[in-house]
């Protein structure tokens, strides 16, 4: 670990805490709204179909799936959209070209700081959940699965970061990549199991998706936290995460080597 890594992390934590009301409002607000929407929506679906479970998940488990997925996605998203493209647009990106350190290392450490911080939210969520529902018969996770799941979320954050690098660096050609980042998040959420658990999709679709990076970004860590994944599935998932990260990192390298020649340092 390089000495400046911990300083970058400490600085990013200070930046998050500089706006601590935003931290709590977003976290708690998002959690309760999500809970409300999910329960009412799936309650109607269950009632309409006159069933008590779908694909092996009852209403409570589905609600739990969405809550964990939702909090977990914050770990995945890390910094806000535009964490590179906005700086390129504004010209503040220049600072990373001046510092005698790797720009990618800096951004990765900075991004992971956010992911680590949001992991804390998942622990808080776990604690709140145990406090209110811990004595009920809802089959929420063991702490071991929670830690394992957060570990997978942090690993898959690196994969998402590599995807984000690819899209964000396009701003060296096109000024505004906001829409592309929104699309990326939509695809990741949809094909990753953020909108509906992936086992609700047809079998053939699940088989195709298994070869893409998407299911390992949300579905795998959420299922791990809920204790629904067995160890073979987890090991296979981690292998895919690392393999896809390496493949995409090669593309990022090419984009960067060409794109940096186009940087003009102009901005607001």
């Amino acid at each position: 670990m390089k000495s400046w890594w911990k300083d970058v992390m400490a600085m990013e934590f200070r930046k998050i805490l500089a706006y601590r009301s935003d931290f709590w409002i977003t976290f708690l607000g998002q959690m309760f709204i999500q809970l409300l929407v999910t329960i009412s929506l799936w309650h109607s679906v269950f009632k309409e179909n006159n069933v008590t479970s779908m694909q092996g998940l009852n209403l409570e488990m589905l609600a739990l799936y969405y809550l964990v997925a939702n909090v977990g996605m914050r770990i995945l998203w890390g910094e806000n959209i535009g964490f590179i493209s906005r700086e390129i647009y504004e010209g503040t990106f220049t600072r990373y070209l001046l510092y005698p350190i790797s720009f990618f290392q800096y951004k990765t450490v900075s991004y992971l700081s956010y992911s680590l911080f949001y992991s804390l939210q998942l622990f808080i969520f776990y604690w709140l959940y145990q406090l209110f529902f811990g004595t009920s018969d809802l089959s929420f996770t063991h702490l071991y699965y929670l830690i394992l799941g957060i570990g997978i979320f942090l690993t898959s954050s690196l994969l998402f970061l590599t995807l984000a690098f690819m899209v964000e660096l396009i701003s060296l050609w096109a000024d505004n990549v906001w829409t592309l980042m929104i699309m990326l998040r939509f695809f990741v959420t949809f094909f990753g199991g953020g909108f509906i658990p992936l086992n609700f999709l047809p079998h053939w679709a699940q088989e195709i998706l298994a070869w893409t990076p998407f299911p390992y970004l949300i579905n795998l860590p959420v299922r791990t936290i809920l204790g629904l994944s067995h160890h073979t599935e987890i090991i296979k998932g981690i292998f895919f995460i690392l393999a896809w990260t390496l493949i995409l990192a090669t593309f990022v390298k090419v984009i960067w080597s060409r794109g940096q020649k186009r940087y003009t340092g102009v901005g607001i």
Partner: peptide, 30 residues
Amino acid sequence: RRQMSLIMGQKNQVWWDLPALDSFLLLKEI
């Protein structure tokens, strides 16, 4: 890069949301 510096009058290079000393501490390590 360790021996050079660029100061642009119209651009901020220190972090906007933090006190200057926080930025300086990071620069010390970098």
